[in-house]
Structure formats: structure tokens, C-alpha cells
């Protein structure tokens, strides 16, 4: 396959970036998108040029480090697929492809296609956990968890933190990311007692990172490589309204609800 690649090059967040065009004549349809970039980079290195910076690690769609806006689509054209699992057979011979970094205020560019997504970690720091110290826990089967809740929690917990939702959202919103973590923890009895405080802190933390708000375009769930549904955003909204406007439950009420 022949591919024309327009790759975004940018020194750092404070520099202007621009596209650089490369012609690749020998692309195998069995290559992954990143392997195609590898080929380009080895060629650039051999010519003594600085290769295109992009991130990848596990290359099996789970670590969440790979990104790339591929011709206007986060993680490229295939649904439920990360860039590292996207194969060149999804493109046609002679295609021209534009590759851009994730763009969002909360994701400043580090170099070329690499962005700083630590804002997502900071959202988690605002309460995206169950406060349980090592050792101080009950026997695993002492609390039953309804299967449908465990399954639903798993649907939400499948998030890989890649930031495609933010990148695809016209508002650069991290609501799907935040909502998924909140849903994961609040659907399980272990996460319930802290739920009200967690949701208030995490929403506040999310806003503080400079993410936009949701205007219900649904682009995030289309871009999500784990197909996480915006139903979790609705749930977050519902729970946030309740937690913010109703009196806070006492600890004993919450434990009873567990």
C-alpha cells in the first residue's frame, strides 16, 4: 500500500506546530498503525533526522498510552479499537492520513504527538479510590455483590485512561472518564460509603483541571476504545445532583445501604 502521511510536529506546548508530509510506499495491510509509524521513524533515523515522537507501550490495547487523532478520529476509524490495535487494512491504498496529537487545554503537548495527560491522574487523586488500608479488610466473600452490578461496574472500570474521550469531545470534557470511575466505585458495595463525598470532590477536581463541560454530543463514547457508554455520565449527573442538593447521609446510613 502507498500512504501519504501528514504528521503533526511540534517542539513543545509553547511552540507553534505544523504538519510534515511523508510518503510511505511499502505499507503492509497487516501492520498496525504504530508499526507503520515505526517504519517511518526508522527511515528518519537512518537519514539522521529526529523521529516523530509518539507514545506506545503495551501495543495490545490496554495500557492506554497510545493516542493519536487520525484524520479527525481519535484512535482512528475502527470502533472500539486503540491506535496500537488499528491495522493498516482499515485504510485504502493511496490514502492521505492526517495525524495530530490529542488536543485539549488539560493535555498540553510535550513533543509532536505526545501530550501530558497527568490531569487524568489528578482527577483520580480527588477520590477515585476506596479508602482502605492494606490488611484492614473483611473476607472477600463476606459481602455479596449482585452480578449485574459487578458486570456494570466492570463495564465502567474497563476505562484505560487514554484520554480519547477528552480528545474527541468538542469541549475537551473529561466527563466520560470521571463518570466511568465514579460508576465503577459506586456500583460496588465497597465503594458506596464514600460515594457522596467522592463525587463532589471528583467533579470539582475535574473542573479545576480545565476540562470543558458536556454538551451531549456523544463523541466521547464513539471514540472510547473500550466502548464506555455515556449512560455513566447520566448517572454521574443524577448522583451529583443528589449528593449536592440533598443532606449528606451519615456514615451509619451509608453503611446500612451497603
Amino acid at each position: 500500500m502507498k500512504i501519504t502521511l501528514n504528521v503533526w510536529r511540534q517542539r513543545d506546548a509553547s511552540s507553534e506546530g505544523s504538519f510534515e508530509t511523508h510518503q510511505l510506499d511499502d505499507v503492509s495491510p497487516d501492520m498496525s498503525f504504530l508499526e507503520m509509524l515505526d517504519v517511518l521513524n526508522r527511515r528518519l533515523e537512518a537519514e539522521g533526522k529526529v523521529p516523530v515522537a509518539f507514545e506506545s507501550d503495551c501495543r495490545e490495547g490496554i495500557c492506554g498510552v497510545c493516542s493519536l487523532m487520525i484524520s479527525g478520529q481519535a484512535h482512528g476509524p475502527e470502533s472500539g479499537t486503540t491506535t496500537c490495535q488499528l491495522h493498516m487494512r482499515s485504510f485504502k491504498d493511496g490514502d492521505t492520513i492526517f495525524v495530530e496529537p490529542w488536543r485539549a487545554k488539560a493535555f498540553p503537548v510535550i513533543r509532536d504527538l505526545v501530550t501530558d495527560r497527568s490531569s487524568l491522574d489528578r482527577v483520580i487523586q480527588c477520590g477515585g479510590y476506596v479508602s482502605v488500608n492494606t490488611g484492614s479488610v473483611p473476607e472477600a466473600n463476606s459481602v455479596q455483590v449482585a452480578k449485574e452490578n459487578a458486570d456494570k461496574a466492570m463495564d465502567a472500570a474497563a476505562c484505560i485512561g487514554c484520554g480519547a474521550c477528552v480528545a474527541a469531545c468538542p469541549n475537551g470534557s473529561a466527563m466520560l472518564f470521571t463518570a466511568a470511575k465514579l460508576a465503577h466505585l459506586s456500583l460496588l458495595p465497597q465503594g458506596k460509603p464514600e460515594h457522596e463525598r467522592r463525587i463532589k470532590r471528583m467533579v470539582e477536581g475535574m473542573d479545576a483541571q480545565g476540562f470543558g463541560a458536556c454538551t451531549n454530543h456523544g463523541e466521547c463514547q464513539e471514540a472510547c476504545p473500550k466502548l464506555i457508554s455515556i449512560e455513566f455520565i447520566a448517572k454521574m449527573n443524577r448522583d451529583y445532583i443528589k449528593a449536592s442538593l440533598l443532606p449528606e447521609h451519615t456514615s451509619s446510613e451509608l453503611l446500612k445501604a451497603q
Partner: peptide, 10 residues
Amino acid sequence: IDQCVAQGVP
């Protein structure tokens, strides 16, 4: 397993 369940591992 006890620890992970308490952390909310689904």
C-alpha cells in the same frame, strides 16, 4: 483477594 475486593476490583 480480600484486599482487592475491598478496593473495588470488579
